[in-house]
């Protein structure tokens, strides 16, 4: 049931037009952060206001929306955002990745391969990949303009010198179509390869920082690395204890105060589908 006291998908039409224009420019210049006049939303900054605005600008009444946080449909903030769109746009919702036409996400890319016609909307806290190397917007804007990405390589190389490996485990920077260095949002670097050449459209919204950027389908995205230290998409060296998947990203769950722990898929829909299909892990229903 849609709340009639607000416009379809909450935002007024003028705001949606402004956001839509920014999205189109983002699509035209993949990886470039388009400034937009982010609005105050009825949820706090830092809690997905950018993603919510992008989703609101994209939604039609025919869409089926999925919202995940940390890969899961049932985390509190995902529940809250899903409810917001049920209330203000009256759209159908789903937990099944394959049924969704728009997926809003925080910190994960679903395990199930995305398809043409789907849109993945990322919530982005700090869109500027160079921000922690240079806090000033005036400077980082110049660095993007001049393709001055040396500082980023120096930082990654310092990691290698000190630790023997690049010590960035999430929010791992990428280069888009050989031009812009882009922040993929705080997804684990395990997810980075899925950014590249996806059949789905990927949109990124940063509300507080007032930026929107995009990866059109089939856009080439490379995680920054060095010839002698190539990028590795790593994960915990375990299988899911519920569904037995060996190739999914895992959450570590502490089960007692004696050091007991288990590993389960962070993508709850992926895990449930596998269990439904009869797969089982160490502690699953079909397990020992």
């Amino acid at each position: 049931m849609t709340d009639q006291s607000y416009n379809f998908a909450y935002l007024d039409e003028q705001t949606k037009r402004m956001i839509r224009r920014a999205i189109l420019k983002g699509v035209a210049v993949p990886g470039y952060q388009v400034p937009f006049a982010s609005r105050e939303m009825p949820m706090p900054y830092g809690w997905g206001t950018g993603g919510v605005q992008v989703t609101a600008a994209c939604l039609t009444p025919d869409d089926t929306l999925k919202v995940i946080d940390q890969g899961a449909d049932d985390t509190t903030n995902a529940v809250s955002i899903r409810k917001f769109f049920q209330r203000t746009a009256g759209v159908a919702v789903t937990e099944a990745t394959t049924e969704a036409t728009i997926i809003q996400t925080r910190h994960r890319i679903p395990e199930t391969a995305l398809t043409a016609g789907q849109i993945l909307v990322y919530q982005v806290p700090i869109p500027e990949p160079l921000r922690f190397l240079e806090p000033r917007e005036t400077e980082t804007r110049k660095m993007h303009e001049l393709e001055e990405y040396g500082l980023m390589h120096v930082k990654l190389y310092e990691d290698i010198a000190r630790h023997g490996t690049i010590a960035t485990a999430y929010d791992y920077p990428v280069r888009v179509e050989g031009r812009y260095v882009m922040d993929p949002s705080p997804i684990p670097k395990f997810d980075n390869p899925k950014l590249s050449d996806s059949p789905a459209l990927q949109l990124f919204g940063a509300g507080r920082e007032q930026r929107i950027y995009a990866l059109p389908p089939f856009t080439h995205v490379v995680s920054l690395d060095f010839d002698d230290h190539p990028f590795v998409a790593s994960k915990a060296p375990h299988d899911c204890d519920l569904c037995g998947a060996g190739e999914s990203y895992l959450d570590e769950v502490i089960t007692d105060d004696q050091g007991g722990r288990m590993f389960v898929c962070s993508d709850t829909d992926f895990c449930r589908s596998r269990v439904a299909a009869g797969h089982s892990g160490r502690l699953g229903a079909g397990g020992k």
């Binding site: 105050e40 706090p44 900054y45 830092g46 809690w47 206001t49 946080d69 940390q70 890969g71 985390t75 509190t76 903030n77 925080r106 910190h107 994960r108 806290p125 010590a167 485990a169 999430y170 929010d171 705080p186 997804i187 684990p188 670097k189 395990f190 507080r208 790593s234 994960k235 915990a236 990203y249 895992l250 959450d251 570590e252 962070s266």
Partner: peptide, 25 residues
């Protein structure tokens, strides 16, 4: 302060995934 408090307080939201990747690292 609306921006500041939102971003400050967002660190109490789940960060299992980022934390897990740090843990592995």
């Amino acid at each position: 302060n609306v921006q500041a408090t939102g971003f400050l307080e967002h660190i109490k939201l789940p960060h299992y995934v980022d934390f897990q990747s740090e843990l592995e690292l």
